[in-house]
Design a protein around this nucleic acid. Structure first.
Length: 496
RNA sequence: GCCCCCAUCGUCUAGAGGCCUAGGACGCCGCCCUUUCAAGGCGGAGAUCACCGGUUCGAAUCCGGUUGGGGGUACCA
């Protein structure tokens, strides 16, 4: 399905990939794939002071990790960069901005402004004191050639300001219909090129979207009020105006725009905590969009098939981590064995390095454990909560060892008796269904409740009250370690 | 302050005038299963569709206002 639709995501490498940027990227990707259009990635690195190569790498890696692919830009097909409109990093496109700025200057659609930061600051305060909305005073809007020459002679370079024309600017937004804004509310003529010659966002975004033939600008709702500035620039530069679509924001639990202060915003943090790409993509897509059916679990490809921009919600959506965790569990349960083990390995290794466990399990060990751990994992990292006792030495805690309905003496008796029965069992038949009957008989002989004995044993061999099924745990632990932990527990209780 | 946007269970949402005494999912509460924890199954509580007017035979759905919430107001992106 060939199409002229071209969309883009334009992250700024001033921080790790933000969950909101990831979702905007996802929506653009879905729209492009659904319509057979082209998806472009462009790096907006003109904030030189805050941009870093490390953040750039984090952004590209996290996007790749999510399974979001782009057709043009840095990192396509493993290349440094690919696409007919290269380069895709703004700091390498300075020439085109300079050219566009010259064109505006030549037509007097923009002018040099020599106001100092101090003057601007004073203006801002004055307007605030007068209870007026902040706006540029226009001090340099009509300088005579002599006045200009005088300032240049002082060594002032001057920023370039775009003349905002009076009138109303409107557009038909893809998801919120008609939006109109009076340019009188734009804050006056705005700066498009800094005094040091570097271009500003509002300017570069327009020059590049035009140069890269972007047909649909799909971005966050926080850009709605910037859109008139962009439209004015498209007009002044003589470019065609793309179609705009503003998607709702992802919100903190308190309903404000999602921020690092109140939420975890870096995609890399979610990756580090053991969320799967399937769950994250599924979750993010359903934040603000829904297929209109009652499906809850959809893959990236399935979502791309069904994705429609007009089914995107207008209002912002709060980020609900509990729902994300539920989805993650759903996807973990659907992964095949080899895949799950491969994804688990980095987490057990990291836990070993961090000292949370004494040694990292082998691939074979993990595979064998899958039947009893998989439905207990809400994240990949939680593998150590579920089975960490297998790879860690235990220090018996006498107080925790005694089941609710038992006392210390009964617990000693129970654990010792259980140890004897199990010791009598030979190693070859050390299997769950072989281990259970002798202990059931023991319980019956003493008139105990199975749950009490089992809990005592569970605490003794794992150190925790919530574990996978007890007899499977004994098997995973092996005869020697089971017996040793039972002995150690009895010993700890006796000397307590 | 000014400009703009938004508004269905606690949360994410279905709903595009009669199918809605508003459906699903997360979370919550029971019950079942059960050696614990999960998973799974079943059931339940939970929304006067923010409010007030209007249009209409009929409104969650259309219009206006109010209230509430959010976003933007940079020589950041």
């Amino acid at each position: 399905m060939p199409s002229d639709i071209r969309v883009r995501i334009a992250p700024s490498p001033t921080g790790p990939l933000h969950i909101g940027t990831a979702r905007t990227a996802l929506f653009n990707y879905l729209f492009a794939r659904h319509t057979g259009g082209t998806f472009v990635l462009r790096l907006e690195d003109t904030d030189v002071a805050r941009s870093t190569a490390a953040f750039e790498k984090d952004i590209l890696d996290a996007l790749h990790w999510l399974g979001i692919t782009w057709d043009e830009g840095p990192g396509v097909a493993g290349l440094e960069e690919a696409g007919p409109y290269a380069p895709y990093r703004q700091m390498q496109r300075l020439g085109s901005y300079a050219e566009a700025a010259e064109a505006l200057l030549a037509k007097d659609l923009a002018y040099r402004c020599y106001c100092t930061p101090e003057e601007l600051e004073a203006d801002r305060r004055a307007r605030e004191a007068a209870k007026l909305p902040p706006a540029y005073s226009g001090r340099c809007a009509h300088l005579t050639p002599d006045e200009r020459a005088a300032r240049e002679a002082e060594g002032r370079r001057g920023a370039i300001r775009f003349r905002v024309r009076p009138g109303v600017v409107g557009w038909n937004d893809l998801i919120r219909d008609r939006v109109e804004i009076d340019t009188a509310n734009l804050g006056g003529d705005f700066v498009i090129v800094r005094a040091d010659g570097t271009p500003l966002y509002h300017f570069t975004v327009v020059v590049d979207d035009a140069a890269m033939q972007i047909s649909h600008v799909i971005r966050g709702e926080d850009h709605v009020s910037n859109t008139p500035k962009h439209i004015l620039l498209f007009e002044a530069l003589g470019y065609g105006i793309p179609t705009f679509g503003h998607v709702p924001l992802i919100l903190n639990p308190d309903g404000t725009k999602m921020s690092k202060r109140k939420s975890q915003t870096a995609v890399s943090d979610y990756i580090a905590q053991g969320f799967t790409r399937e769950a994250l993509v599924n979750y993010l897509a359903f934040l603000g969009w829904s297929p209109g059916t009652e499906d809850d679990l959809l893959t990236l490809d399935e979502i791309a098939q069904r994705f429609e921009l007009d089914k995107v919600q207008k209002g912002g959506a709060r980020f609900d981590r509990e729902r994300l965790e539920w989805l993650n569990g759903q996807w973990i349960r659907r992964l095949d064995d080899a895949d799950l083990v491969a994804r688990l390995l980095p987490f057990t290794e990291a836990a070993a390095v961090a000292g949370q466990i004494d040694r990292a399990p082998s691939e074979g060990e993990l595979t064998a454990l899958l039947p009893i751990v998989r439905e207990r994992l809400s994240t990949l990292a939680s593998i150590t909560d579920v089975a960490g006792f297998l790879w860690r030495e235990l220090t018996p805690d006498p107080a925790a060892l005694v089941p609710k309905r038992w006392d210390a003496a009964t617990t000693i008796e129970g654990l010792a008796a259980a140890g004897e029965r199990l010791a009598a069992h030979d190693a070859v038949t050390w299997e769950a269904d072989e281990l259970e009957p002798p202990l059931r008989r023991l319980v019956e002989a003493r008139g105990w409740k199975a749950g009490d004995l089992f809990m005592a044993i569970r605490m003794a061999v794992t150190g925790q009250a919530a574990t996978p099924p007890l007899f499977d745990v004994l098997v995973a632990l092996g005869r020697e370690r089971t017996l040793a932990r039972l002995d150690a527990a009895v010993e700890a209780l006796r000397s307590a």
